[in-house]
Design a protein around this nucleic acid. Structure first.
Ligand SMILES: [Zn+2]
Ligand SMILES: [Zn+2]
Ligand SMILES: [Zn+2]
Ligand SMILES: [Zn+2]
Lengths: 175, 175
DNA sequence: GAACCTATGTTATGATATATCGCTCGCGAT
DNA sequence: ATCGCGAGCGATATATCATAACATAGGTTC
């Protein structure tokens, strides 16, 4: 009834704990900010956190209908997502038209995302050297930055390691 | 019958020249690579270059129909775009679901884009310091980079300058 | 000239996102 | 208490972006 998250969620930790922690923290933050984390918004946040990978709006819509039996239409979901994004409780992954929970919603940040093509896990960075490099190039050209989108696609450390392991398990000249 | 491009294209240069140059260069590159820049693909490239801003697939579709009178459906356009992307003659702007001509298609490159919210112009950078900062953070985490998406939204130098000019033209305490 | 490959046409559908209207509920002002 | 008001959400319709699947046309190989 809890614990281990499936496949792309990260296969080996108490993911239920990730979800609970994210939702609890969101509650505090919203209270502090004087904005309303309504039951629907809370539930959508929970669903975004169903995995550590990007989750599509229509997947959330399906879950609202099938798991909750709730009547729901696209605007239901998109309005909740819009709120969560404004509050920086989730991020939108532009290159996938999907959404992912923010790992550090307390303070504003320019984040970067490492997105694994194998397992789907998104690692959120807040690396100043990347932010600075971008800011520097922009300002050199008189460009005023409002908003950075940095999405890196590739293979995560874990998947790379397991691929290497299975390769070395095979005979030296397999084909 | 030529020259000055409208609005978001860049209001003050011989944009027809930009287009012709891009298409001619594309022709050479494709020949060198032994791939076929067919009339349709050439025309779609031309249409992507209609401005220096991102152009949507369906805008291209409309132009094919209304300007060329050609029978065209979405796959017509998307297939041509796919070819042009593979050949790196254009880039996809993920955060806008749109496409922009590549300013330096000869060699492969990891590019970054400065996208102006006012005038729509996209400035393509190929900055090693950004690429390196990303590569370094990734490899530190064992992440193998396949592909970087860096899209910076904000106000370009020209628009910022003209906004500042019109502000300073107004009385000191306007409201 | 038959087999084959590439590019394109054609039809249908899938996937993502927004516009608009109207209802309800909580809450402060009168 | 009741009125007005705004936030949240339900519901319907539609807009926007993208691909699947199959048909056709033309050129190349043998
Ligand atoms: Zn987890
Ligand atoms: Zn992975
Ligand atoms: Zn130009
Ligand atoms: Zn501008």
């Amino acid at each position: 009834m809890s614990s281990i998250a499936p496949g792309p969620a990260g296969a080996d930790h108490d993911h239920q704990h990730c979800i609970e922690q994210a939702v609890a923290l969101a509650g505090e933050i919203c209270q502090r900010r004087g904005v309303r984390l309504t039951p629907l918004r809370r539930r959508v946040l929970q669903l975004v956190w169903k995995s550590h990978g990007p989750v599509g709006a229509y997947a959330i819509l399906d879950w609202l209908r099938t798991e909750d039996g709730r009547s729901a239409a696209p605007p239901t979901v998109y309005r909740a997502l819009e709120f969560l994004i404004e509050q920086r409780l989730i991020h939108r992954i532009e290159s996938m038209n999907a959404f992912v929970g923010c790992v550090d919603p307390s303070r504003p940040h320019a984040a970067q995302y490492l997105i694994c093509r194998k397992c789907g896990i998104v690692t959120e960075l807040e690396d100043q050297s990347i932010t600075d490099a971008i800011a520097q190039q922009a300002s050199q050209r008189g460009f005023v930055v409002h908003d950075q989108t940095v999405e890196v696609h590739g293979i995560c450390g874990r998947c790379a390691a397991s691929a290497a392991a299975s390769r070395s398990a095979t005979p030296a000249h397999p084909a």
